[in-house]
């Protein structure tokens, strides 16, 4: 299938702001021969957490594994995907809760 026939997906990842993470994430795409159509990296509205916004064309049955592979990187907190332009405003709230919960678990140890 020509890659132009594939759906556009938008992936968002909430991450630590560490050297080398961009190339680690880019490698996940290159290894699967997925082209990145659009890429933005910037501080998210969760304090101390960065956000990647990546738009790619991908086969429907591959996108979930790509997102899980991104989330598997040690410096990534959470990754999501959706069909382009269907961005959910609840993501950053989820990440905020996740950070709070993980830190609470650690403090209770």
């Amino acid at each position: 299938m020509d890659s132009k026939d594939l759906k556009l997906y938008e992936i968002t990842a909430y991450t630590e702001n560490h050297v080398g993470l961009l190339s680690a994430i880019a490698g996940i795409f290159a290894r699967r021969s997925l082209n990145i159509e659009k890429l933005l990296v910037y501080p998210s509205d969760v304090p101390g957490i960065h956000k990647f916004k990546i738009v790619t064309r991908c086969e429907d049955d591959k996108i979930e594994n790509v997102v899980l592979q991104i989330e598997k990187k040690v410096d990534v907190l959470k990754a999501f995907y959706h069909i382009n332009n269907e961005y959910s405003g609840r993501e950053s709230q989820l990440v905020r809760e996740l950070v709070a919960q993980r830190e609470k678990e650690e403090n209770n140890k």
Binding site: T15, E16, V74, D75, V76, L77, V99, R102, E103, E106, K109
Partner: peptide, 8 residues
């Protein structure tokens, strides 16, 4: 090290 917030 027994905790990294981005790693579970």
């Amino acid at each position: 090290c027994s905790f990294i917030r981005s790693y579970n």
